[in-house]
Write a protein that binds this DNA or RNA. Structure first.
Lengths: 220, 220
DNA sequence: TGTACATCAGTGAACGCGCGTTCACTGATGTAC
DNA sequence: TGTACATCAGTGAACGCGCGTTCACTGATGTAC
């Protein structure tokens, strides 16, 4: 089983017949294995040994790439913030001109990221990482993601597309609504009145509708 | 130390000189000990043995009151939902007449609950409980809490205080913004532009301001 | 009021377990000449 | 092209640990008579 896995990985770069002693992409493979394991085990019960098992390597191998279990999670969180920033950036880019449309697009991008990467979201915000400050690149990535949203809110305020209001209040309100929607929907807590979970399409529609409702409320 | 703790507890009901063999309020004490331990250990690393140690009893004693570690957490989550419902209910009650003021009050109550009981919030929404359905009273408490918010939103829609919009959208939007604000502020993630965490007073002002901004946006 | 007894709520030893991390090692790879 | 050698990226055994849960037990409490 572990042999099979390793051969599988190795064959991605070359058609080897034997398991490679050197994995080649173990760092990525460990991150991928972690993300695959979380639906089964939860971030809570996730263990470095299970991750290594899943990646088909010995459990000590991961120490060549991550100094600790937490630093593996920090790497995933950082990746998450990069994906989140990119999701918002590209959504904004698709709506040139109108600040309010940009804001709605960025918000929808935030929520959509959460729906597409629920496990990243859990690691980013679920308290898995004790102190962000210990991972400077993670802090930078988180900051950069936030700036996508603050930038477009600021633009709305200065252009007059957003009605006059305390800037910090609008910033936090915009963040809160998209974040809340993302975590609630990613956690499966938003249900139809009948009590069943929303389908993917319904969630996407909800992301769009809620951000639209919010942005309409911000218009002068 | 453990003797001291037990004497301390017992003396709450009577002035005993010796540690009582029967604790008397162990269920409550275990819940209290858990909540005290979470700031130190995090929900993640929390152990039943540490909780028992903190409560000053043997680690097997908790099985007289909770069938498992998770059921202890479920009891805390349930308590949290009861507190949350009560926070919103009393806030609504304080604003008779105006639906929009009621909604804002309920929202502020939600956020304030989160700020006052961050560890409850973490247990309620942090994924500590695998399957809510296994704890029917927890499900009922969660439902009842949600109804406080849905009720007041509905009232706003039928009374015309809230502008015409898809009902489900408004429901989810209201929940998302207060939930997002609660988890972000309780997690210490909302900061001043200078990068320092908000004071308690600033957080309270933020709860008030953000819910007001949101409700203004809902007016016809 | 006193006694017998059932029940309740604790104790502490024991179980088996998987964990994170360290360590000396070894096979694979890359490079200088 | 061949060889020597440094470096890199793995292995697997071992460490000490605290965990959740079970079990037979015992001291405390409440109740029937």
């Amino acid at each position: 089983m572990s042999t099979f896995n390793r051969r599988g990985r190795a064959s991605a770069t070359a058609t080897r017949k034997k398991p490679a002693y050197h994995h080649g992409e173990l760092r990525k493979a460990l991150i991928a294995a972690t993300l695959k394991l979380i639906p089964t085990m939860g971030v809570r019960e996730l263990s470095l040994r299970a991750v290594a098992r899943r990646a088909g390597v010995s459990h000590s191998a991961s120490y060549r790439h991550f100094s600790s279990k937490e630093s593996l999670l920090a790497a995933i969180a950082e990746q998450g913030f990069i994906l989140l920033a990119e999701a918002m950036r590209s959504a904004i880019e698709a709506h040139p001109g109108n600040s309010l449309a940009k804001l709605q697009a960025a918000g929808t991008g935030y929520v959509t990221f959460g729906l597409q990467h629920p496990h990243h979201l859990q690691i980013m915000f679920g308290g898995a990482i004790g102190r962000f400050e210990e991972y400077p690149t993670l802090v930078a990535a988180a900051k950069h993601a936030r700036q996508q949203l603050t930038g477009v809110v600021n633009e709305g305020l200065t252009s007059g597309a957003v009605r006059t209001a305390n800037e910090q209040l609008v910033q936090v309100a915009a963040w809160a609504i998209v974040h809340g929607l993302a975590v609630l929907m990613a956690g499966g807590q938003v249900q139809t009145p009948a009590g069943v979970e929303l389908s993917q399409a319904e969630k996407a529609a909800m992301a769009n509708g809620v951000t639209r409702l919010f942005c309409e409320g911000l218009a002068p």
